[in-house]
Write a protein that binds this DNA or RNA. Structure first.
Lengths: 190, 190
DNA sequence: TCGTGCTATGCAACTCGTTGCATAGCAAGT
DNA sequence: ACTTGCTATGCAACGAGTTGCATAGCACGA
């Protein structure tokens, strides 16, 4: 399981609370890993027990106190050992593809709406990613930062992962267009 | 959860035993859904109890008997109702992307081997898909079959899903090349 | 002041998925 | 005779992930 490792990476990039991690998992980390706050709190607790992370109580004004987690030596070692361990390519699961093949036994055109909805969701995410890329990697401000610190691995690797997300969304949009063209051939009704 | 629905679709395409389903999930269905035989047997049992599928004992010579499952009316209805239910776009989980971002805190070049392995796996799957496409959809024999039964939804929809698998593998190969180029920039050692 | 909404953490119950193991028939090689 | 390997089904235990709910502080507007 990689949730603990995803958390370690995120905490190495910047220490934070469970709640903050949950929000990161909704955005930037969200393009390659998802997790709810429940999962994150539970795993953080286990990682704390295992000595992978350190906790620090941070009082805040205007909002509840938080527990800020940071990576301990044991956690760094655990991450390093996982990084050197080969893993299998992830298995894919696409409910939508199941639906598309299943549509042959129902009314294929009834799926058009659903496919369009998914296409829109991917379009939205693509635009979100592109905006993030402009802001953090290709925009003028980001370029100035890059000039000050060229070949920064953290930055470059975050960017290449983001490019993966962008490529994925573009691929999905193209494929969903292909699906829509195919569905349209069956005409109205069944 | 869609495993039961994936099984329904597969059984509608052709009735079969749990063992046969497990093998289908290793290949053709494997490009959008994975499942082990344990999962399949357990879910088949539940579906049988719910009256979604019918079972028939099939004696075989030279090998153990099998139970052949086929879709019952209730199962067809369940599939249909699921097809008309909107679902959320699937969340993505890529261990490899976690590793890539994590590599910033270790030796980035140590990942090169791992990435190459994954690239090869995707290359192999792509070739497997392309061979299947040629055999079932674009080859001479397949074309003759298509001429006899044009606009067959089952066939067309299977093909468009396969094209999705092909597009996915091509995207992954392209992205992994991008990753390799990026990793190479950090030179040997850390 | 009452509801709404955001930050922040957590429990309990449940379902889903994986892993290891077990059984059993039969074929084919050594 | 023994082992290996494929078909075929299944149990038991565990771990991962989801869902519903609960609590609590504070801000802000109607």
């Amino acid at each position: 399981m990689a949730l603990e490792h995803a958390i370690l990476v995120s905490l190495l990039e910047r220490p934070g609370s469970g709640y903050e991690l949950a929000r990161r998992f909704e955005r930037s980390i969200g393009y390659f890993w998802t997790a709810t706050h429940q999962q994150i709190y539970r795993v953080l607790k286990r990682m704390e027990n295992d000595g992978w992370v350190d906790v620090r109580d941070v009082p805040q004004q205007g909002r509840p106190d938080k527990k800020e987690y940071s990576v301990a030596d044991l956690g760094r070692a655990a991450l390093s050992s996982w990084l050197h361990d080969p893993i299998e390519p992830d298995s894919v699961r696409h409910d939508l593809a199941v639906k598309i093949r299943g549509a042959a036994f129902d009314d294929p055109t009834a799926l058009i709406h659903e496919v369009k909805r998914h296409r829109q969701a991917h379009q939205d995410r693509l635009e979100h990613y592109l905006a993030g890329e402009e802001r953090d990697f290709t925009g003028p401000e980001a370029n100035a930062a890059a000039a000050r610190a060229p070949l920064d691995p953290e930055r470059e690797l975050q960017h290449v992962v983001l490019r993966g997300g962008i490529a994925y969304e573009r691929m999905m949009i193209g494929w969903l267009d292909d699906v829509l063209t195919t569905l349209a051939r069956f005409g109205p009704g069944r």
